[in-house]
Structure formats: structure tokens, C-alpha cells
């Protein structure tokens, strides 16, 4: 298959993915906007006003980057996991597997679909946050890099989950029992400085700490961890997830008999 044909195939997958989540926008886009509005109201306005400053910012300003990143992580992950598992479940993935489209293009198509939903939800949540606080961006470059790297990483993670999943239960186990706790313990609502030394060190094993802090640095200019180390960790996990996803596709594991 020639390069321009692969490109057409790639655009076809991306278009299909975007159409899919826009068609069911009440399930894919709206919930994040509502959930984040509640977070802003409860944690930012009601409780936040009693907490005072954190790392030199109002509590509302402090939690906004983490909440935006939370929306990006969950949406890029859940888009790929539900879409790819759905196509496995309905056997429509066979449409792709019997075609000459390369495994790399298949993976990229789904990942870009997931990234696009993550970005769209990030825009929606950011717009919602503007009703509650003023946002001034410290580094647009860092913000863009972190958003793209993070959404790619979690889209890939969603893909791996989808390949291994045998039922719809399997695609909700990881988001519910792994992803959500890691996000909550990743410093979205608090600074690592508040933790006792032992728990602060344990938290450093949580990859979401680097994602949240790198993004917070991009927005506010403060971080509990070194920016370069955080970006390095995200890049490392992204490369690992990409390599493993390609291995799954090339070996045909759980996709071909």
C-alpha cells in the first residue's frame, strides 16, 4: 500500500472515530463538562474559599490544571478503550484486519481519535473553568507538549486495555479501580508538600503525579517535581505503551486466531 493510500486509511479511521464520539456527545462530551463544573463549585468555590492559598495560588487556581488534566486522561483513555473493544465485540475490527492498512496506521488512527476527544474535552472544561476563575498560562509550549504527550499515553493505554478485554466489565475495571485512584492521589487536589515524607516518596511512583505537575507547571509555573524529569517520565511511558501496542497488533494476540 502506497504512502498516500495509508494516509487516506488513517484519515478514514480518525474521521470514523470523531464521528462516533460526536454522534453520542451526551455520553462522551457532556459528562466531563458537568462533572468538572461540580468540582469547580464544590472544591473551588465552596470548600476552596476556606482552604486559602496553596503554593501561592488560590485553591481554585491550584486545582484547575489538575482537573483539566483529569478530563484529558479519562477521555482519551475511555475513547480508545470503548471504541476498539466495541469493534472487537461486534467483530467490525475485521474490516480493518482484512484490509491492507498497516498496523501502525490502525494504532495511530485510534490514538489520534482518542487524543482529539481528550483535546476537545480539555477545551470544554477550560471554558467552563473560566466561569469560576481567571486563567493565565505560564508556558503555552509546556501546556501543548504535556497535553499531547499525556493524551497519547492514555489513548495507548486504552488501546492495550481494549485488546486484553473480553467483556464490557473488563473495560471499566482499569478506569474505576486504577486510573481514578491514581488521578486522585496524583496531586490534583493537593500539593505534595502537604504529605508526610514517606507518602510523598510513595506518590513519586504514581505516573499521574508527573502528568498533573507538568501541566500545572505549564499553567501556573509551579510544580512539585522537576519539569524535565516529569516530561522524561511521560515520554518513557508513552514509548513503552506504543511499543507494546505495536507488539500486540503485530503478533495478532487476542485479535487474530
Amino acid at each position: 500500500m502506497k504512502v498516500h493510500e495509508q494516509y487516506v486509511a488513517f484519515l478514514t479511521i480518525v474521521r470514523k472515530e470523531i464521528k462516533r464520539y460526536l454522534r453520542i456527545w451526551t455520553q462522551t462530551l457532556l459528562p466531563s463538562a458537568i462533572t468538572m463544573s461540580l468540582y469547580f463549585v464544590i472544591f473551588g468555590t465552596l470548600i476552596g474559599s476556606r482552604i486559602g492559598e496553596m503554593d501561592g495560588f488560590t485553591y481554585m487556581e491550584f486545582v484547575v490544571p489538575g482537573l483539566i488534566m483529569m478530563a484529558i486522561v479519562t477521555n482519551s483513555y475511555s475513547n480508545v478503550v470503548s471504541s476498539f473493544f466495541g469493534s472487537k465485540f461486534s467483530h467490525s475490527v475485521e474490516e480493518l484486519l482484512v484490509s491492507p492498512v498497516s498496523n501502525f496506521v490502525i494504532l495511530m488512527g485510534y490514538v489520534v481519535g482518542g487524543v482529539s476527544r481528550g483535546l476537545l474535552v480539555a477545551v470544554v472544561v477550560t471554558l467552563v473553568s473560566l466561569f469560576f476563575t481567571d486563567l493565565s498560562i505560564h508556558s503555552y509550549f509546556v501546556v501543548v507538549v504535556v497535553v499531547f504527550m499525556t493524551s497519547t499515553l492514555f489513548a495507548l493505554a486504552g488501546f492495550i486495555n481494549a485488546v486484553y478485554a473480553n467483556s464490557f466489565d473488563d473495560i471499566s475495571i482499569i478506569p474505576t479501580f486504577v486510573l481514578t485512584p491514581l488521578i486522585y492521589l496524583g496531586g490534583v487536589f493537593y500539593s505534595m508538600d502537604l504529605l508526610p515524607e514517606f507518602w510523598a516518596n510513595v506518590s513519586k511512583l504514581n505516573p499521574l503525579v508527573y502528568v498533573v505537575n507538568a501541566f500545572r507547571y505549564g499553567v501556573l509555573g509551579v510544580s512539585d517535581v522537576s519539569l524535565s524529569f516529569a516530561l522524561g517520565m511521560i515520554a518513557f511511558f508513552t514509548a513503552l505503551a506504543f511499543g507494546y501496542s505495536m507488539h500486540l497488533l503485530n503478533s495478532g494476540k487476542r485479535l487474530r486466531q
Binding site: 493510500e5 478514514t12 469493534s87 491492507p100 492498512v101
Partner: peptide, 18 residues
């Protein structure tokens, strides 16, 4: 995909072949 339109199913398949 049972939720896709018939035309989209055929057009997408063509896209997978470039």
C-alpha cells in the same frame, strides 16, 4: 458496526483500501 449507517460502512471500507 450495527450503529453506523450503511453508506458509511461501505465508504469507510473503501478508505481502508486507500
Amino acid at each position: 458496526n450495527q450503529f453506523e449507517k450503511s453508506l458509511d460502512i461501505v465508504v469507510n471500507q473503501a478508505g481502508y483500501y486507500g
